[in-house]
Computed example of a mutant assay.
Amino acid sequence: MNAPDQKETLHRYLKNAREALLWKLDGLDDYDVRRPMTPTGTNLLGLVKHVASVGVGYLGDVFDRPSGIDLPWFADDAEPNADLWVPAQESREQVIDLHHRAWAHADATVEALDLDAEGAVPWWGERGQVTLHQILVHITTETHRHAGHADIIRELIDGAVGVREGMDNMWTGDADDYWPQHRGRIEEAARAARQHATGSDGAT
């Protein structure tokens, strides 16, 4: 595979991941897109905000292509994890607009540079000398990781699942109660495994 084909493939996988992440907001109200669904506060709109924000850095500043996009949650005096949640005064529309602006700038960087173009990631220390190829792999992997987080968060909120719009990629069988039965079998297997290992089923 030649270099242009490699770049096109990597870029396509990145675009698919970020579109899947944004899609997870569809159909939810302002509470559900922001509500923390894990003990560490993971939430859908915060994931979109975070991924867009790091995209500005990795596919902008790292290659000396500043975006001009203001990211106050990355300021030196910002509180920890400020990029991972959305205060009430930040609207959903603002975060979605950030997503589109950040990735338009990132796309322009990818299109303008060769895969062997060099950049520098200051926060990586001695490992900071990088190429566009390395950063495309890194940011695509991170975006898919967070899209996976969003898959689980959305399912916990309202049971909605799917890879992308129009494609859930989930086999459900013929029975209407397939998923409850399937989950039940997995629960039984987990309990049986614990009983086998400890001699107790853990029931209280």
Rank of each mutant, 00 (worst) to 15 (best):
Ala78His: 09
Gly46Ala: 05
Pro87Trp: 03
Gln89Glu: 15
Val48Asn: 00
Asp70Gln: 04
Gly57Leu: 03
Val54Ala: 07
Ala52Trp: 00
Gln89Gly: 10
Asp61Pro: 07
Asp83Ser: 13
Phe74Asp: 01
Gln94Tyr: 04
Ser53Asp: 13
Ser91Arg: 14
Val51His: 09
Val62Asp: 13
His50Leu: 11
Glu79Val: 15
Asp83Arg: 05
Leu59Cys: 14
Ser53Leu: 09
Val56Gly: 04
Phe74Ser: 06
Asp76Thr: 09
Asn43Glu: 14
Asn43Tyr: 14
Val48Gln: 00
Asp76Gln: 01
Ser53Phe: 13
Ser53Gln: 12
Pro87Ser: 00
Glu93His: 10
Phe63Ser: 03
Ser53Ala: 15
Val62Ala: 15
Val48Lys: 02
Tyr58Trp: 15
Val51Gln: 10
Leu71Ile: 14
Asp83Glu: 11
Val48Ser: 04
Asp61Met: 07
Pro66Asn: 04
Phe74Cys: 02
Val56Lys: 00
Leu71Val: 12
Gln89Asp: 15
Asp83Val: 12
Ala88Gln: 15
Glu79Asp: 10
Val51Asp: 07
Asp64His: 15
Ile69Ser: 00
Gly60Asn: 09
Trp85Ala: 03
Ala78Cys: 06
Gly60His: 06
Gly46His: 05
Leu44Val: 03
Val86Tyr: 08
Val62Gln: 09
Leu84Ile: 07
Gly60Arg: 02
Gly60Asp: 06
Glu93Asp: 15
Arg65Trp: 10
Leu71Cys: 06
Ala88Asn: 12
Pro66Glu: 02
Gly55Pro: 09
Leu47His: 10
Val51Trp: 08
Phe63Trp: 05
Leu47Asn: 13
Val56Phe: 00
Ala75Gly: 10
Tyr58Glu: 09
Glu79Asn: 07
Gly68Asp: 03
Ala78Tyr: 09
Val54Ser: 05
Asp76Lys: 02
Asn81Trp: 07
Pro66Gln: 05
Tyr58Gly: 07
Ala52Lys: 07
Glu90Asp: 13
His50Tyr: 15
Ala88Gly: 13
Gly46Pro: 05
Trp85Lys: 06
Ala82Leu: 06
Glu79Lys: 08
Ile69Cys: 00
Asp77Tyr: 06
Phe63His: 04
Ile69Pro: 01
Arg65Ile: 12
Ile69Trp: 05
Val48Arg: 02
Glu93Val: 12
Ala52His: 10
Asp83Gln: 08
Gly57Val: 13
Gly57Cys: 07
Ile69Phe: 01
Pro72Ala: 02
Leu71Tyr: 01
Val62Ser: 13
Val48Met: 03
Arg92Met: 11
Ala75Trp: 04
Pro87Glu: 03
Asp70Met: 01
Leu59Tyr: 14
Leu71Thr: 13
Gly57Ile: 11
Gln94Val: 03
Trp85His: 10
Asp64Arg: 14
Pro72Asn: 05
Glu79Gln: 11
Asn81Ala: 11
Glu93Gln: 15
Asp61Ile: 06
Lys49His: 09
Leu44Thr: 05
Glu79Trp: 06
Leu59Met: 14
His50Pro: 10
Pro80Ile: 10
Val56Met: 01
Pro66Trp: 01
Asp61Trp: 05
Asp64Asn: 15
Val54Lys: 01
Trp85Pro: 04
Arg92Gln: 12
Gly55Leu: 04
Tyr58Leu: 11
Glu93Phe: 00
Val51Ile: 15
Leu84Ala: 14
Gly68His: 02
Ser67Ala: 11
Asp64Cys: 11
Ala78Pro: 11
Trp73Asn: 05
Glu79Gly: 10
Trp73Asp: 06
Val95Gln: 00
Asp70Cys: 04
Val51Gly: 09
Gly46Asp: 04
Pro66Val: 07
